[in-house]
Write a protein that binds this DNA or RNA. Structure first.
Length: 197
DNA sequence: AGGAGGATGGACT
DNA sequence: GTCCATCCTCCTT
């Protein structure tokens, strides 16, 4: 079942944990890809120095973070890769969850098609934020889209096996001063598709 | 198993 | 001009 508006009306830390095990559905050109979320990071409102929306900084790029929970926030990083975030909490409270790694469930052939790499290891296809965006053909066109209504990108809840959640500091946010040690990265314990241990 | 180097572009000072 | 919520390949231990 598709996650509804209510699911997203919570702070990013809670949402980052709740999103683990949920399934992202991506459709384009009559193709369907499904992947399970196995690793996330929470970026928490105006106080969080790691967040693009620190001090409520609202620009063309960060505007989607200020939307009501349940929208996407997609930005270009290092000139080459896109990162997919799920906006949470209330309108004008810029919380978002970065999807850092996913596990392929359906459409593996399409994922391989979208990811041209030498390595043939399945784990290397979607175990990082830039990788999974490439695998799912995620780009600026999907920035700010409504995950409750979109036919191209949304998240569903399915029967999943029990799992344990581990946490750690977030990746590559050395600039965030006292916020860089917050353990706001969450991942499924022992899952082989996480970006790093 | 881990580091160097490069690719590449938008946002911001 | 500098900084990035990154990744890939090739190289040395």
């Amino acid at each position: 079942m598709r996650l509804k508006q209510g699911f997203y009306q919570k702070d990013a830390v809670q949402a980052a944990k709740d999103l683990l095990g949920k399934v992202i559905v991506r459709k384009y050109n009559d193709k369907t890809i499904k992947v399970k979320i196995v690793e996330t990071e929470a970026y928490c409102g105006a106080e969080d120095k790691a967040s693009h929306a620190h001090n409520n900084k609202k620009t063309k790029r960060t505007a989607p973070m200020f939307k009501k929970g349940g929208h996407s926030y997609i930005y270009l990083i290092y000139g080459m890769y896109y990162c997919l975030n799920v906006v949470t909490a209330a309108e004008n409270n810029p919380h978002a969850v970065l999807i850092r790694a996913v596990e392929p469930l359906k459409g593996l052939n399409y994922i391989k098609e979208n990811r041209q790499i030498k390595s043939s290891k399945i784990e290397n296809l979607t175990n990082g934020p830039g990788k999974l965006s490439q695998a799912l053909k995620i780009n600026k066109n999907l920035d700010g889209c409504n995950l409750i209504e979109s036919d191209f990108l949304y998240i569903i809840d399915t029967e999943t096996e029990e799992f344990e959640i581990e946490n750690s500091p977030r990746i590559n946010i050395d600039y965030a001063e006292e916020y860089k040690d917050k353990k706001w990265r969450f991942f499924i314990k022992n899952n082989k598709y996480i970006s790093r241990s």
